[in-house]
Simulated scan of single mutants.
Amino acid sequence: MDDDWLARFEAVYRETYHQITAYAVRRCDSPQDAADVVAETFTIAWRRVSELPPGQEARLWLYGVARKVLAGHRRSADRRRRRSVELDTEMADLYGSSPDNGVELSVIAQVFGSLSDDDRELLSLVAWEGLGREEIATMLGLSRNAVRVRLHRARRRFSRALDEAGVRSTTESRMVPAGRSL
C-alpha cells in the first residue's frame, strides 16, 4: 500500500468515524456490538481503500458497508439465539425437565449462560453437536486428553452451578447425547 492510499484512508477515517459510530450505536443493542460494527466497517474500508469513492461519496459508501456489516451481525445474533433455544431444550431434556421435579428451563438457561465462553462451547459441542472427544480435539486443535480434562471441568462447573441454583441432576442426566460415550 502506498502513502497516497494510507493518507486517503486516514482522511476518510477522521472525517467519517463519528458519523459511522453514531449510525452503529443507534442500531445496535449494546455499545460493544456497535464497536464491533464500526471496527469491521473500517477494516473493510482499509482492505478496499482503492475502491473508496471521492469526497462525500466515501461517507455514503461507508454507510452502505456498515449497513451490510450490521445485517451480518444481526443474522449471527439470530443464529446464536436459535441455537441457544435448541440448546436450552437439550439441557432441559438432559436434566429431566418433568412435572415432578419442577426444573425450570429458564433457570437452566440462566445457569448455562453464566458459564465461561469456553465451558459453554465445550458443553455445546457435546450436547448439541453430538461430537466426541476426538472430534472436539481435532476441531479445537487440542489433544484428546486436554479435551477430556477441560470437558470434565466444564461439566463439574455446570453441575455445581446447577446445584447452587437448586437444579439437581441425576446420574442419568449427564451431558452426553444418547448412544455416545466420552
Rank of each mutant, 00 (worst) to 15 (best):
M1Q: 04
D3H: 06
D3T: 12
D4V: 13
L6N: 11
A7W: 00
R8V: 08
E10K: 08
A11W: 05
V12I: 14
V12P: 00
V12D: 01
Y13A: 08
R14Q: 13
E15Q: 14
Y17T: 09
H18P: 04
Q19F: 06
I20L: 08
I20F: 10
A22E: 10
A22I: 04
Y23P: 01
Y23E: 02
Y23C: 00
A24F: 13
A24N: 06
A24D: 13
V25I: 11
R27D: 05
A35W: 00
D36F: 02
A39H: 03
A39D: 05
F42G: 03
T43Q: 12
W46M: 14
R47F: 00
V49W: 00
E51V: 10
L52F: 04
G55S: 13
Q56R: 11
R59N: 01
L60E: 12
L60V: 15
L60I: 10
W61K: 08
W61Y: 15
L62H: 10
Y63I: 09
G64S: 06
V65C: 11
V65W: 05
R67T: 14
R67Q: 13
R67W: 08
V69L: 03
V69G: 01
A71Q: 13
G72L: 03
H73K: 14
R74L: 12
R75L: 07
R75Q: 06
A77W: 06
D78S: 13
D78C: 07
R79W: 02
R79S: 10
R82T: 12
R83S: 05
R83L: 05
S84W: 05
V85C: 02
A92T: 13
D93T: 15
D93R: 15
Y95Q: 02
S97V: 09
D100L: 12
N101Y: 12
N101F: 12
V103I: 11
V107P: 01
A109S: 14
A109P: 07
Q110A: 15
S114M: 04
S114V: 03
S114N: 09
L115K: 04
L115T: 01
L115V: 06
L115Q: 06
D117M: 07
D118W: 02
D119C: 07
D119S: 11
E121G: 02
L122S: 04
L123R: 04
S124M: 07
V126K: 10
A127E: 07
L131C: 04
L131N: 01
R133L: 13
R133P: 00
E134G: 04
E134W: 00
E135C: 00
A137F: 04
A137V: 07
T138Y: 02
M139A: 12
L140R: 15
G141D: 06
G141M: 00
R144T: 12
A146T: 14
R153N: 14
A154W: 01
A154I: 04
R155L: 00
R156E: 15
R157E: 06
F158L: 07
S159T: 14
R160S: 11
R160W: 03
L162P: 08
D163Q: 11
E164T: 13
A165V: 02
S169K: 08
T171E: 15
S173C: 02
M175N: 09
M175H: 02
V176E: 10
V176A: 07
P177V: 15
G179I: 09
S181R: 15
L182S: 08
L182T: 06
